[in-house]
């Protein structure tokens, strides 16, 4: 299963579902992390975590533990953008 934290910097993926507690899930969805959204990993913090993701033109940092619970589409067609 491919998850958001698997994205390399510069890579784009399509979001499938969020496996998070309802409150957090809703909060992230209002920030643009909805199914079918295209999410791109744009930076990693110098220590390797958290990672900055771009969604709907906004940049949002998530820790790996959170990004691991966000499922992405298996195909890598979005890699080139």
């Amino acid at each position: 299963m491919r998850v958001l934290s698997d994205l390399e910097v510069g890579e784009t993926g399509v979001l499938v579902a969020l496996d998070l507690p309802p409150g957090v899930q809703n909060h992230l969805m209002y920030m643009g992390f909805v199914p079918d959204a295209r999410v791109k990993a744009v930076h990693r913090a110098p220590a390797g975590d958290p990672t900055v993701y771009s969604v709907d033109g906004m940049e949002i940092a998530l820790r790996r533990e959170t990004a691991q619970s966000i499922r992405m589409q298996e195909n890598q067609s979005g890699a080139a953008e």
Partner: peptide, 9 residues
């Protein structure tokens, strides 16, 4: 634990 770190840049 239920509120993760979410930071908008």
């Amino acid at each position: 634990s239920e509120t993760p770190f979410i930071l908008e840049l």
